[in-house]
Amino acid sequence: MSLGPGGQAPAHPPASEESTAALDSEIAALFQSAEEPLTAASQAAFCARLERDVRRLRRRRRLQSAVLALAAVLGVTGLILRSAPALARLANAAAWAGSAGLLHIGGWLVGPAGWSVSLVLGGALLWRLRTGRG
């Protein structure tokens, strides 16, 4: 729909033979002549109000994302701590497999501390992606 002068949308041409506008042009003309243009002040006030609402909505979405991310991190960390013995055995196995270097780092990564750090970083990354529009 293109806009006419004053930002008013012109009436659409009939989209099909069944278009009611074509059936009763007098009532359609009455509708068109009853159009009231909006003042510039009214349009500016409308935009300002919408801007405030969008800001409020954006803040709410950020807060919701933060709460969700925090809840996810806490939940998964809790799960990790519950299964810590199993992870510790895995870490010991990794440490046993190699005495130094990358295997040590690997052992740390599969341990609770490594998992927690990875989750926090992953959560932060997810948060950034989710609020990319904000």
């Binding site: 659409h12 009939p14 989209a15 278009s19």
Partner: peptide
């Protein structure tokens, strides 16, 4: 009625 006469929409629309 308003969608038909003011917006010029067809019945299907």
């Amino acid at each position: 009625v308003v969608l038909a006469y003011q917006e010029g929409m067809s019945h299907d629309e």
